[in-house]
Structure formats: structure tokens, C-alpha cells
């Protein structure tokens, strides 16, 4: 398998000073996806910002795994609602006076 878009978990953990068990626990809870390639674990580069965010919650803010799990769901909802609000605002803008299109 091509590992070009993947980063090895041990590399990530060493760089970020994060325990491997933490990343594995996130994977068990479905918060990140781990890919196994020849006995080595990787995460997709696309998931790095999320993984860093979850690590900050745990290590900087002292939030335990249960808290992180609950917060992740809430944040997804908040972001979804913000997106919806933005789209509704844009749609509403089309009907405001002066809007020709």
C-alpha cells in the first residue's frame, strides 16, 4: 500500500509528545481512523489537524477521553449549524432588495 499520504503514529507521537495509547484510544472510539500497513500504524495526513486538536484537548485542557468524545459530537453539530446558518444567510441575501440575482 502507498504510504505517501500517511504519517506513522510513532512519528506523530514523538513529534507531538503524545502517547501512542492515546491515539489508539481515539481510534477505538471512532474519533480517528488508523490504517495498518505491514505491522505499522498510520493516520492519513488529512486527519492530522483533527488529531492535533484532540491531543490539545487532552494534554493542554486536561479533558479525559469521555469528555473528548462528547465534545467532538457537539463540535460537529456546532460546525454543521454554523454552516447551515451561513448558507441560509446567503440564500436570504438573494431575496433582499437590491439583489438582482
Amino acid at each position: 500500500m502507498n504510504t505517501e499520504n500517511l504519517i506513522a503514529i510513532d512519528v506523530f507521537c514523538a513529534q507531538q509528545e503524545v502517547e501512542t495509547s492515546f491515539v489508539l484510544a481515539l481510534h477505538e472510539r471512532g474519533l480517528v481512523t488508523i490504517t495498518q500497513v505491514q505491522m505499522r500504524y498510520f493516520v492519513e495526513l488529512e486527519q492530522l489537524p483533527r488529531l492535533e486538536q484532540l491531543a490539545r484537548m487532552h494534554y493542554d485542557l486536561d479533558i479525559n477521553l469521555e469528555g473528548i468524545e462528547a465534545l467532538s459530537h457537539m463540535l460537529e453539530r456546532v460546525e454543521g449549524l454554523q454552516r447551515e446558518l451561513r448558507e441560509l444567510g446567503e440564500r436570504l441575501g438573494r431575496y433582499e432588495p437590491g439583489s438582482d440575482t
Binding site: Q53, R56, M57, D60, L61, I63, L75, V78, E79, Q82
Partner: peptide, 10 residues
Amino acid sequence: ARKLHPDLNP
């Protein structure tokens, strides 16, 4: 920080 961290207040 738990209340105001940018990660928790997108």
C-alpha cells in the same frame, strides 16, 4: 481555557 479555547469555539 476549557471554556474559551479556539478548538472548542469554532
